[in-house]
Design a protein around this nucleic acid. Sequence first.
DNA 1: GTCTGATAGGTAGCGTCACAAAGTATTGCG
DNA 2: CGCAATACTTTGTGACGCTACCTATCAGAC
Lengths: 112, 112
Amino acid sequence: MVPIRPEVLKGHLDALLLAALEDEPRHGYAVIEALRTGSGGTLDLPTGTVYPALHRLQSAGLISSEWHTVGGRRRRAYQLTASGRAALAQHRDVWDRFSAAVTALLARPAPG
Amino acid sequence: MVPIRPEVLKGHLDALLLAALEDEPRHGYAVIEALRTGSGGTLDLPTGTVYPALHRLQSAGLISSEWHTVGGRRRRAYQLTASGRAALAQHRDVWDRFSAAVTALLARPAPG
DNA sequence: GTCTGATAGGTAGCGTCACAAAGTATTGCG
DNA sequence: CGCAATACTTTGTGACGCTACCTATCAGAC
């Protein structure tokens, strides 16, 4: 199994984070788990990647957060804003076109 | 039409370049055209992206090059090495898993 | 003759952004 | 007590594609 190099995620992380928050509010750790299980284990993102990215998204106004304490542990629950939902739709559009293009270009040439 | 931000290509460029050279040797300019037409115009890469990337691939031993002169114009034709073909196969494997994971994670939640 | 655009190649510098690594703190289990 | 899991944070780094710019040839328009 060829390891997936980190850089391939570049530019797609925001889309994944927004999508992970679409159904329901989640805190950072839960987002990481959602991405891991939702990708069948393929994507297991380090905290140093996810937490700063969530902060960026909040600064950009795409998500908002609220502190909770559950079982003695502090949690910061994030949820999508209206801008966040719009951004997610745009990310989906970009992904559809980008992945279609790459898939087409990587297709093996017809044999013969 | 939402523009595709440059960063999303990160980590996938090598795969596309190798794939563009799979069928036949091509020079840099022809590679750019092959990617543009093969992607239906979605990917139109600047020369400042492609030429340095081809140099990197050659330094890495994945492609080799040969100078030609056609119609008074200097061309550097690149072709895959054995390592390049192996790398392309690995890139395809990574892309398949990565794109499947992202597509799954970006799928809209079931309505209702 | 001159200008423009397509063809063909090149480099320097920049900015983005995910990552590695390290740290804090709590809960629960052996 | 030691250790793993949960939960969040921050600093610094490096890879790498892009912008902007440069050289040069050839074809066609004017």
